[in-house]
Design a protein around this nucleic acid. Structure first.
Lengths: 188, 188
DNA sequence: AAACCTACTGAGTAGTCAGTCAGTTTATTT
DNA sequence: AAATAAACTGACTGACTACTCAGTAGGTTT
């Protein structure tokens, strides 16, 4: 059973996520977030010191969720090619199911709040290691890491963004075609 | 010889572009744009009815520039594969040389001002036709257009964004590796 | 039942925002 | 040189912003 405090806390985070995804950080006032969460405007600042802290907490929460999703389905015994397909398909599926999370992460990455490298925001240890291992074992071409990252993450983000902002349908066949093509372009 | 009006007009557009790329649309006040352009705050509204119109004019200007760059180097006599490499390399090179333009376009696409489909913002007739022709002639896999777009534009945007926001160096070899890998992933 | 504490309220504060407009300067025409 | 028009100025406005804080409600402890 959740405490009242926790309920309000998560209600604020959820309202903020929806509004941030739709209108952006700067386009969303703290008063509106509070209203959407069903509390008074001052209550937001009882739970979060500043608007920025609310954004940072949201970022950490989403980052953790993605990490968990990828860890759940990770099978270290599989060959690197299988793990690539599996891992990056899971990431794409996640963003298709949670479009607001992608829109939030994209904004966060662009904003001055973000300090880490571009794809680091999505790039947990699982996916990072897969790419790294594929490169070391010569399963993929010997090209700079930045290029590998762009080739692997670029199409995923691009397709998921299209889905998030324009609502085009993306089925399993399209997911498979995308991730397979990414690998085919990278492999030796 | 440019008129005084034209000078001020372009000075405002240039200042706006630099500030928008660095701080975002909402994070940049019209007063600051005017100051950076060396004019009084009211002058901006003599040249542009609203802040939104300024943004839209900037979008049209950048879109036109990209179209021209791609048309300049277009060689219809070449096979579709050559035109793909040539065209998409030119787009990537453009964004590496004009990082602010990419950052602006990315913001514009996300904002409620943009109405067209995702990659349509970069996707002028040249690149669109190349992809379309490659698909019709079975030079590339028979997969949905959205997937083709994501595979072709995703890595370019991703790599150029990394360059724009983190300043990592991208040389000709990396450009070639990226575009070649895109094609290799798509080809039949 | 008194004291205490946590969660919450919403009017209020100081500051910023896009956009206005009466008036001034500069350029062009007559 | 007078008249007209175009370009520009910057103080101003009302609406909005993140954030504050004195006060309130309800539950728990003593």
């Amino acid at each position: 059973m959740k405490s009242k405090k926790e309920n309000t806390h998560t209600a604020l985070l959820r309202a903020a996520l929806a509004l941030f995804a739709a209108q952006g950080f700067d386009g969303t006032s703290t008063a509106l977030i509070a209203k959407q969460a069903g509390v008074a405007s001052g209550t937001l600042f009882f739970h979060f010191a500043t608007k920025e802290e609310l954004i940072n907490q949201l970022f950490e929460e989403i980052k953790l969720k993605i990490e968990n999703v990828l860890l759940e389905n990770y099978q270290p015994s599989q060959p690197v090619h299988e793990r690539f397909i599996q891992g990056f398909s899971a990431l794409l599926r996640y963003f298709l199911v949670n479009p607001q999370h992608l829109q939030f992460m994209e904004q966060y990455h662009f904003s001055p709040l973000s300090t880490c490298a571009l794809n680091d925001n999505y790039n947990n240890h699982v996916l990072k290691n897969i790419l790294h291992e594929a490169r070391e074992t010569s399963a993929v071409k010997d090209i700079p890491v930045q290029v590998l990252h762009a080739l692997a993450f670029g199409p995923i983000v691009s397709l998921a963004k299209e889905h998030a902002t324009r609502g085009c349908t993306v089925d399993e066949a399209m997911i498979h075609a995308t991730i397979t093509a990414c690998w085919d372009g990278m492999k030796t």
